[in-house]
């Protein structure tokens, strides 16, 4: 009894004491309310719509920025982001072929070893 009375008094040593008390008494119900809320159709729809709106409105700015950067890089005789991306894609393809060649060479080497042993 006296313990619960103590808990309700403000403790100057613990500046977050009041927050803790609020949390302990309300956290579970808040958690349930919020979890239920984010699982509603209304939340799903509004999130989807907000995301779509953000992508739609920011798209033209992004495109304008990319296009002006591409022009600037071309003026400077420098590769653009797209050039580097295409080059990286080609490198990945080459890497895959090298990996296959490496595997075949290893297989060949191990079968040669086996034949030599026999």
């Amino acid at each position: 009894m006296s313990q619960s009375k103590d808990n309700q008094t403000f403790d100057p040593f613990d500046p977050t004491g009041m927050l803790k008390q609020m949390r302990d008494s309300n956290m579970e119900s808040w958690s349930k309310i919020m979890t239920d809320f984010v699982n509603t159709e209304a939340y799903a729809e509004s999130t989807g719509a907000m995301l779509d709106a953000w992508l739609t409105t920011s798209g033209p700015f992004r495109k304008a920025m990319e296009s002006s950067m591409a022009q600037a890089m071309a003026q400077l005789n420098m590769p653009t982001r797209d050039d580097i991306t295409r080059l990286a894609e080609r490198l990945t393809n080459i890497e895959m072929r090298l990996d296959d060649l490496d595997a075949r060479l290893s297989e060949g080497a191990s079968s040669n070893d086996t034949q030599a042993t026999n």
């Binding site: 989807g48 719509a49 779509d52």
Partner: peptide, 12 residues
């Protein structure tokens, strides 16, 4: 939540 959000037609 993921299934619910992604199945909503507004999510593309």
């Amino acid at each position: 939540g993921f299934t619910r959000w992604s199945s909503n037609p507004a999510f593309n």
